[in-house]
Each structure stands twice: as structure tokens, then as C-alpha cells.
Design a protein around this nucleic acid. Structure first.
Length: 512
RNA sequence: GGUCCGUUCGUCUAGGGGUUAGGACGCAUCCCUUUCACGGAUGAAACACGGGUUCGAUUCCCGUACGGACUACCA
């Protein structure tokens, strides 16, 4: 059967979209594009108690920022909507009842206290895994143990109930994961998971099978944390009679902490000072803040490139991929099996690569925006010039301003270490001559003219330019390191240059 | 505890029965250079362990160890 590929990203609106979720979305997007299929987004909000306002908007904005927006979603619906499970609520009960009718599910009336008592009883009896299953259900209050008329009476009285799947006692459940191959689980280790909650909402397990089926999903690409419940899902497809159109599964490796072990979490972000969310997020309930890659200065294309390589690789030595190139190169077969430790250095490196590839004009525009906040105005030509000489040393576009402040603000202090090491009489003499020559110069101060004048100033005094170069830099910028000095001179202009040299000559003392 | 998944340089990974085990990030050294950076070159750095199978295993199989996920009327 050759169906159109339809994949989905199904986040829960319980907070900021985690980077692992973003990667899942990306892989789904890449696969859909690669196969000329459709990428859908479905909001899994069946747990009303965990709903967080703004979370859905966050998801939407994050995907838009990255340029991987879904083809069908709550805000851009296709023909299989609604795309929010809460809005699909009326659809689920009939499917649960269908299962009850077929004998694959049953009503259960146990209270939370009774369930807890059961678990304690089993734990006390040293039962390895205390769960609601083919053995224990015979001792609980459900439509399998209660007389038919009592079940009926309870249902009619409006007593709360759930619907549980009836897991067979002895059955081998197999699934062929696209990434992991055959996975086999014995049904005796599965429990009778709740399908319909007492509030009338389906659980994830029921909803995701019903929705994936109804939405024509062909491939389920999701995190590895779902692997243990995948056999349950296979069973559901079977009981519904949908096995022939059951999607193929691909369980992605987890994103791990950079140090030690375990899933990457917000704690790691706080601990190491790097983001794990695409964008800044303030939790509306707790007021807790989390930083985002976007606000830290990561660009969408570099972030995407970085993300794609967290668990996938093209099989050759290329590292830099545009979104289009990722689509072209992507395949599920090349996704790795093992968990991936998160390395922020690589993210930075990617950002540097992308930053350097940007045009001077584009980076100049970033710089101008930053300058505006500082109340400094500059022509776009000059901004582009500065971007040109600064971009080799920047990780983020914000570094253009942070690292290039001396272009706009004359130094008031000088790096002491450089002063004591480099500032001497020769430097003073050369700069003094340079200042005089500059004052008498009324041509355009280009990097070339700036340099030739400086060279003649050094020569006149019989001093080798190389000897005093760093002191010259110190005098004009206040520090011992930076981009090409003559370019800096040209950019700040003659008058500013002269006044800075003057200031330095008056304030810098030659140490004994 | 149980079930499932995993394990190649510090990190991301390529590879696959016979290789000098390749690349990238990071690190170190050198070169370039007016400094720093960029760039270039070089280097240190890995097949978890034990059994099989085999003429030969890092590669296949089985154990062990270690790690992880899951084990809710959460997704």
C-alpha cells in the first residue's frame, strides 16, 4: 500500500517546548519534506490539570522561528481536525466502548484509595511489579468481577468509572521499530492501562491511537521514552482492527545531560548557563524563567543544523547543512540508537560558522539594532564595515557590539597588563609624531593611509613599527587585542583617532 | 525490583570479520600575523569487560558490567 506519508508532532501544552521536543519536531518535518508528505501538529491536552496558558502559542512561535511550521495544525487546520485533543473529546468514548463490546476493555470502579491499597498489598506480598493486570483485576471492582446488573446500576447512578484495556495473559507482542529493529514484549509484563479517565477524557494511549488512525498517520517518530508503551499501542491497533494501516514506529534516542547521566533538563540549563529551550519562557504559574536559544543569540539555521546532528548524521564528513540540505540528506535509517549528550560548544561552533557566512550588510543590521538600544547611531555602511572586521571573532551577533564597543566609545582606562608590558618611550614618541602627522593630514583616512602615515612616523624616529604596534593599539582601544588596527582607525576616523591618541599620551605613564 | 533500550576518542559520530579504526567539536603545539581571532598544519585521544563462532573479531552470538527510559485516571 502506497499511502502519502503523514507524520505528526504531538506536544503537550504543559510549558516551554523542550529542545528534545524541538528535535522530534524537526525530524518529523524533515521526513515529511523528504518524502513529499505532510507534517501535522496535534496538541495533546487531554490532561486539563496540566494545561499551561501560553504553552501552545510558544510551540507555534518556536516552530515558526525555526521555519519548520506544520502543514496542518490547530491554527492551520487540514481536513482531519480538530487538532486539539480537548476539542476531539466527543470522539473517543465510542472507540473505548467498541473495545468494551469486543471484550478488549472493561469498566473499572476502583477508587484511588483502593488502587493504592492494592499496590501496597502486592508490595507487601513481594510481588515484583504491583500492577492492575490479568491477575489482580480479578480482585478489583470492575465489570469483569461485578455482576452485570450491578455494573449497569453503577453506570446509571453516575458513579465515576474508568475504562481499562484488558491485556491478554499470555501473548508475545512484537513491533518493528525503524530505528531499533524488532522489539518483543510479553503481555504478562503489561498492565491494564486506563483508556478513558473518570473525567471523560481519554488517556494519551487511547487518544494517540485513535487520532493517529483518524488523521492517517503513517509514521510515528517520537522520543525513546515511548518505547515501553509501544507494545500497548500495537495491541490497541490490533483490537480496533486497524493493524493493516498501523503507522511505522521510529523511537528517537534521548538527549542526555552534558555531565553525568540522565535526561537533559532545565536544571542542567541553570547549572551550566546554557539554554535548553528554543526561546525565553516565563512560567505563568511559578513565575520561573528559562532562557532560550533565540534570545541567547543563536540563529535559527545554525540551531537547526546543530539539532539535526544530535542523533543523526549524513554518513559523510559534511557538517554544515541548510534546512533544504538537511531535507535532502535526511533518512530515518541514519538516526543513531544511543542517547546523545548535549554539548553546547558544538552549538556555539555552528553559530560561529553561520555568523561568518552572513553578509556584512546583514550583520551590520544586527549591530545597528544593538547600537540603537545604546543610543548610538551609525550609518549602515559603517555598520557593515565593522561587521566585516568583527565577525571572525564573534560567536553571536550581539558580540559585534559587546566586543566592538571601542569603535564607538573611547577608552577611559587601559589594560594594566598591557600597559606595563608594552607602553614605553618609543611608543610615546611614535604616537606623538603620528598625532602631529594626522593633524596635518586632510585626505581620507583609509586603512592604507592610516598605515603609511604610522609607518613614516615610526621611521622618522628610527623605531621599528612592530615594536610599538601593540602599544598603539592599547592607546587607541584600551586593550591589547582586537581586529585589524588600521581598519579600526579608518572606521573611527581621523578626529577621533587624534583625540584618543592625545588622551593616551596625557594619561599613560611609562613605568620604570 | 521488573520490562525494554543502549554502550567506538572527553563530546557528537563514521566504519564494519583482516583498516595506520576516519571526521567534527574541544584541547595542545607550530605556521600565518601588528595583537587576539580566523585560517592552515601537526599532535594527544576510543572500539566497556568476559566467553564463544571464526584462520582472524572492534564488527556476529551469549553473558556480565555500566548507563538510560518506562513502571499514574501525565504525556
Amino acid at each position: 500500500m502506497n499511502r502519502e506519508v503523514r507524520v505528526r508532532f504531538a506536544p503537550s501544552p504543559t510549558g516551554a517546548l523542550h529542545i528534545g521536543g524541538v528535535r522530534t519536531a524537526l525530524y518529523n518535518y524533515l521526513y515529511a519534506r523528504k518524502t513529499n508528505g505532510k507534517f501535522l501538529l496535534r496538541i495533546e491536552d487531554t490532561d486539563q490539570t496540566r494545561f499551561v496558558p501560553g504553552a501552545e502559542e510558544y510551540i507555534k512561535e518556536a516552530l515558526e522561528w525555526l521555519g519548520i511550521s506544520p502543514d496542518e495544525s490547530p491554527w492551520n487546520p487540514g481536513e482531519v481536525g480538530p487538532y486539539r485533543q480537548s476539542e476531539r473529546k466527543p470522539m473517543y468514548m465510542q472507540y473505548a466502548l467498541d473495545l468494551v463490546e469486543k471484550g478488549h476493555a472493561y469498566y473499572a470502579f476502583d477508587t484511588a484509595e483502593e488502587l493504592e491499597a492494592m499496590r501496597q498489598r502486592l508490595t507487601a506480598a513481594r510481588v515484583v511489579s504491583p500492577q492492575y493486570n490479568s491477575i489482580t483485576r480479578t480482585q478489583m471492582k470492575n465489570s469483569l468481577t461485578l455482576p452485570e446488573d450491578e455494573v449497569k446500576a453503577r453506570l446509571e447512578s453516575g458513579e465515576p468509572y474508568v475504562i481499562r484495556i484488558k491485556i491478554p495473559r499470555k501473548e508475545e507482542v512484537r513491533l518493528n521499530d525503524l530505528i531499533r529493529g524488532w522489539v518483543m514484549v510479553h503481555s504478562s509484563t503489561l498492565d491494564d492501562k486506563v483508556l478513558m479517565k473518570s473525567d471523560g477524557m481519554p488517556t494519551y494511549h487511547l487518544a494517540n491511537i485513535v487520532d493517529d488512525h483518524l488523521m492517517g498517520i503513517t509514521h510515528v517518530i517520537r522520543g525513546e521514552e515511548w518505547l515501553p508503551s509501544a507494545p500497548l499501542h500495537v495491541l490497541l491497533y490490533r483490537y480496533f482492527g486497524w493493524e493493516d494501516t498501523m503507522p511505522q514506529f521510529a523511537h528517537l534516542p534521548l538527549l542526555l545531560k552534558p555531565d553525568g547521566n540522565g535526561k537533559l533538563s532545565k536544571r542542567d540549563a541553570d547549572k551550566h548557563g546554557f539554554p535548553v529551550f528554543p526561546m525565553d519562557w516565563v512560567d505563568p504559574n511559578s513565575g520561573e524563567k528559562a532562557m532560550g536559544f533565540r534570545e541567547q543569540g543563536y540563529m535559527p539555521d545554525s540551531f537547526l543544523n546543530f539539532l539535526a546532528f544530535l542523533g543523526w548524521n549524513p554518513g559523510d564528513h559534511r557538517e554544515i547543512f541548510s534546512l533544504e540540505e538537511l531535507v535532502e540528506a535526511f533518512s530515518i535509517e541514519r538516526i543513531g540508537k544511543s542517547g546523545t549528550k548535549f554539548d553546547i560548544n558544538k552549538a556555539k561552533w555552528y553559530n560561529e560558522q553561520y555568523l561568518r557566512a552572513k553578509s556584512d550588510e546583514e550583520l551590520g543590521a544586527y549591530l545597528m539594532a544593538d547600537l540603537e538600544k545604546e543610543g548610538i547611531s551609525v550609518s549602515s555602511e559603517k555598520a557593515a564595515q565593522i561587521a566585516h572586521i568583527m565577525k571572525e571573532r564573534a560567536t553571536f551577533s550581539s558580540d559585534l557590539w559587546k566586543e566592538g564597543q571601542f569603535m564607538f566609545v573611547a577608552p577611559q582606562t587601559f589594560d594594566e597588563a598591557v600597559v606595563s608590558k608594552r607602553w614605553n618611550n618609543d611608543a610615546f614618541t611614535v604616537l606623538n609624531t603620528y598625532k602631529e602627522k594626522l593633524s596635518g593630514f586632510d585626505g581620507e583616512l583609509t586603512p592604507e593611509t592610516a598605515k603609511s602615515i604610522l609607518e613614516s612616523a615610526a621611521e622618522e624616529n628610527g623605531i621599528k613599527l612592530g615594536k610599538v604596534m601593540q602599544a598603539v593599539r592599547l592607546a587607541v582601544t584600551g586593550v591589547g587585542a582586537g581586529p585589524d588596527l588600521m581598519a579600526v582607525f579608518s572606521i573611527i576616523g581621523k578626529d577621533e583617532l587624534v583625540s584618543r591618541i592625545d588622551f593616551a599620551l596625557k594619561n599613560l605613564k611609562v613605568s620604570a
